[in-house]
């Protein structure tokens, strides 16, 4: 579904992503794990079109994305739930969700709203509330729900567990598992390697802009180097 081939991303003179290649197949949950500053978010931002790679190529559903602006990529079926949630704090919960369906025809909005409210009953209770008044966990649910409003073929989640209490992290990962069971393809970026690998079919380990290890979730959980670096020995 998504094929990233040898991308190099620069911030000015800084070479942030050095020849990264990976792929995500339909129905899979794939995770990119790595420490702070390894380049995880940079990769997602490049895939979704907010940043651009100098070389290499990105193919989504068999079509090259090179240079397509971010708002056009959404139309092709990619949803990106960005780091730090970035929900619209001054808009209501329902307006946030409507924005998630911006590229969708009017007729799909109501069924999609129903679907998202089914998955996140909490959001339904608070649909008229201003998003800024939600708790951190609710905001993350809203960000994910907003991503799902465009019925994406690929859902990219950037650190959904960031800043959440352990019990909420569990909840968020339960939701990811449920979405996976329903067949949603997910690219998950996480610092919480343990959790990420436990839900992922496959994973890639990123270190200072390079992929240093890859394998199934279980393989990486057992991998000595990964254990040492990310799982506390």
């Amino acid at each position: 579904m998504l094929k990233v081939n040898d991308i190099n991303v620069y911030y000015g003179a800084i070479h942030a992503i050095k020849g990264v290649s990976f792929e995500v197949n339909a129905g899979e949950v794939v995770t990119l794990i790595g420490a702070n500053g390894a380049g995880k978010s940079t990769i997602l931002n490049t895939v979704c079109g907010l940043l651009h790679s100098r070389t290499g190529s990105i193919e989504f559903l068999g079509k090259p994305l090179g240079g397509t602006p971010a708002h056009k990529i959404v139309e092709q079926g990619m949803a990106h739930v960005p780091e730090g949630r970035r929900i619209f704090l001054q808009m209501t919960v329902e307006e946030n969700l409507e924005m998630g369906a911006y590229t969708q025809p009017r007729s799909t909005i109501d069924p999609n709203l129903e679907r998202v409210y089914d998955q996140f009953p909490r959001l339904k209770e608070r649909r008229k509330q201003i998003a800024g008044t939600l708790s951190g966990g609710e905001q993350q649910m809203l960000a994910m729900g907003r991503g799902l409003m465009s019925s994406p073929k690929l859902l990219m989640l950037d650190e959904p567990s960031m800043g959440l209490a352990p019990i909420l992290v569990e909840q968020i990962f339960d939701i990811i598992r449920r979405l996976h069971e329903k067949g949603t393809t997910i690219l998950l970026v996480e610092q919480n390697a343990q959790m990420a690998l436990s839900v992922a079919d496959r994973g890639y380990v990123l270190e200072t802009g390079k992929i240093v290890a890859t394998g199934t979730g279980q393989e990486l959980l057992r991998n000595a180097a990964v254990k040492k670096a990310y799982l506390g020995g």
């Binding site: 979704c48 079109g49 907010l50 602006p69 971010a70 708002h71 056009k72 959404v74 139309e75 949803a79 990106h80 960005p82 970035r86 929900i87 619209f88 924005m99 998630g100 911006y102 590229t103 907003r146 465009s150």
Partner: peptide
């Protein structure tokens, strides 16, 4: 940035 991610 977030608006762009919505397809706006």
């Amino acid at each position: 940035g977030a608006a762009q991610l919505m397809g706006i």
